[in-house]
Design a protein around this nucleic acid. Structure first.
Lengths: 260, 260
DNA sequence: ATTGACATTGACGTAACGTAAAGGTATATA
DNA sequence: TATATACCTTTACGTTACGTCAATGTCAAT
């Protein structure tokens, strides 16, 4: 069995990256060479090839190099599990592209006079970060407002979150919006769809909160009505959506009219 | 008809970007506000909404802001045509994701012991830029070596190339490689597949050259054999691929043995 | 010995913003 | 009218992930 080794140019060319990138990766400790030969050259082996592959998968998914380093250097890093997560995330990325493609198609239809489109709709597919950004910005304010101690601990939990979990939140946030939109059309906040939206909303919030309580959930939902920033956001696509979500959550939690 | 206007936060929130991004886009001239009100606030209108949408489509495709500015600011910019190009490029991006997904799937199979994979294969999907990078690096050298005057003009043509055309080259380069690999298996440089590879190769080169000549084409193919950089690159996946491509091109051009 | 390809380190620069400070403006409320 | 809050501005510094270049050492072929 011949031991295959690569210098920087060979590995870079094989992987489709620059030699500069390999040196940078050595420098920041994300991909160290197997050894340094007597001339001072970096020599990479099969283990480094496999790690570079993983790095490139994560990079493709937009993960920062710092995060990638923390992930792949973990002694408990499980390669196959990571690969399966890559797979999921890549499929989500494809769905994201589909949403943008749908946007392009609709925009073409608009320009050709076949249909119309709100200014909001023109940015469909570009806003997935918005909902969780809102929670990041206002979540603390909610907790201060409603004085729930369990929720106060959410900052430490948020910091432990890696990119994969972050993406999970993104997906959940989208599902909340989509389900909510469909549920509003039913007009029934106690109905199956509305209760599903409320449950998804709970799941989404649970990423930020160390522990979940129905009171806090209901409090957040009420804030959507009381606070024009949230109300405007949810109502932009569908008038009444914020109020509907509030009603659905009240029914879901069994808590209503207490917070007014 | 009420005239809709947006300040930075409203437009940014709607588009899923930051207010900082909008100010930056104003600064670099890619998206100027419709007007500045008496307080000095940026006010955007429907035209700016549409332009921002186009900017975000291009950004999604990885086009630099400088290029985007040149494209959208062109008086002859055709919106619908651009949208249709976005569509094509997005579909290609999906195909790129499919290649990476296939790579992930195969890598999982390897780790689970179901199949094997070369080091080269481990980077499938990450190398689309490599071939045209090679031409960029060595193309001028070829022209100096063979003294073809028509080819000397390729620098000016290359500079006029926009991102869409650049991506077109990428796609063609891939097709050359794929077709070449299949053709080598036939063992017949005069066969249909081999001649297709030679033709794709010609198309790819034609992006760089103002005018095509058979002599220059044959010269490049011969260089693949004479120059270890090219030979090593093409032979890495399949031993003999560089020589096979040389033979196929000689037959395609009807020029052989002249350049030796 | 010479030449060309490949390696090293060190260093500067860049694209595309994120973040923060200082200060002005708009709006609602007491 | 005063105050508080949200929003706006400009200025300026910092960050991430490299690209580019210079100076110099190493390897292999002639």
């Amino acid at each position: 069995m011949k031991l295959i080794e690569y210098t920087v140019q060979k590995l870079a060319m094989m992987a489709g990256i620059s030699t500069r990138t390999l040196r940078y990766y050595d420098e920041i400790g994300i991909l160290k060479p197997a050894r340094i030969n007597s001339s001072g050259y970096r020599i990479y082996g099969v283990n480094e090839v496999d790690r570079l592959q993983q790095i490139l998968f994560y990079r493709e998914l937009g993960v920062s190099l710092e995060s990638i380093r923390d992930i792949v250097a973990d002694p408990y890093f499980e390669e196959v599990k990571a690969l399966k997560e890559h797979r999921e995330k890549l499929l989500e990325k494809k769905q994201h592209l589909d949403r943008i493609l749908a946007n392009v198609d609709k925009t073409i239809a608009v320009k050709e006079g076949r249909t119309t489109m709100s200014d909001e709709e023109k940015f469909a597919g570009f806003k997935q970060k918005l909902i969780d950004d809102n929670e990041k910005k206002y979540g603390k304010e909610v907790r201060e407002k409603y004085g729930n101690e369990a929720i106060e601990k959410s900052n430490s939990k948020l910091k432990k979150m890696n990119q994969t979990q972050y993406d999970e939140i993104t997906k959940l946030g989208e599902m909340v919006l989509e389900t909510l939109q469909a549920a509003v059309l039913t007009g029934d906040p106690a109905g199956e769809l509305a209760q599903k939206a409320a449950d998804l909303h709970r799941q989404w919030l649970s990423f930020y909160w160390d522990s979940y309580t129905k009171e806090a959930h209901a409090g957040v939902a009420q804030m959507y009505i009381d606070d024009d920033r949230f109300k405007a956001y949810y109502d932009k696509n569908q008038p009444g959506a914020a109020e509907f979500l509030r009603d659905a959550v009240f029914i879901y939690t069994g808590i209503s009219n207490i917070l007014r």
